[in-house]
Design a protein around this nucleic acid. Sequence first.
DNA 1: AAATTATTTGCAACAAAGTTGCATAGTTGC
DNA 2: GCAACTATGCAACTTTGTTGCAAATAATTT
Lengths: 138, 138
Amino acid sequence: METQIDNLLKRNQLSVTGSRKKILELFLASRGALAHGDIEKKTGEKFDRVTVYRTLQVFLEKGIIHTIPTADNSIRYALCKDECSEGHHHDNHVHFICTTCGNTTCLADVTIPEVKLPVGFKATEFQMLVNGVCMECQ
Amino acid sequence: METQIDNLLKRNQLSVTGSRKKILELFLASRGALAHGDIEKKTGEKFDRVTVYRTLQVFLEKGIIHTIPTADNSIRYALCKDECSEGHHHDNHVHFICTTCGNTTCLADVTIPEVKLPVGFKATEFQMLVNGVCMECQ
DNA sequence: AAATTATTTGCAACAAAGTTGCATAGTTGC
DNA sequence: GCAACTATGCAACTTTGTTGCAAATAATTT
């Protein structure tokens, strides 16, 4: 039987291994975004730290996940939607970072509004971060 | 004679010391934003690493500088405009990160547009990052 | 202007985060 | 199932960030 996860890996020309499956599971399970540390903790002692680093790197390159910068120097990662392909992302939604629980949520329905840049600047990617209190923490 | 820098420090109830003056000079000299590493390099061997960390922290608390999150895990710092005061920032402008030269620029004239959040989310702060090619690198 | 007080700095030691090379183990294609 | 390839784990290391404390420097008082 082919799982959804196996498929995702194969579609991206990646060999199907325990760590990759486990880490993808984590992303699917948690609705929000994960920092490297979260992943290390949640995978327990199952995998080496180095493996987590390398797995995230590969996922990034393949466009399976994208990064969300944060002000506290801990990059978060989140699953890309299906439209994302290698080298070309379409995660043009707003990211919400809860100051209470610390979770990062992709607000998939909130599109980043257009901005007009000064002459001479050419944009390739837009990111929008919102800090505040999320639904669960009100 | 009282320099602009001395004034800025005194206005924020900070003692005027060599490292603080030097680091502020750096910020004034470079139009863009600086990462911790940049500052360490540019101050040469003049100051201890720890001093740079602590100085930046103090400047942050006093609202002299603000942070700009980036996707490569290197927080950048930039001078706040005068309206910023302790605990209350007004840096509601867009930040531009050039993928060619790596510089981060505050687009002071480009205000972050409003977005409507889903019900249940309460925002306290907005950040907008734009990646692309800057004026100098075209 | 000297002395006292308060603050800042540098050092050392440490903790955490991230990287690299290489042998071993696991996966894929045939 | 075997050969070729790829991923993993380990060890060693580099880089980044933190903390406590004594010495140095700046501000304040008289």
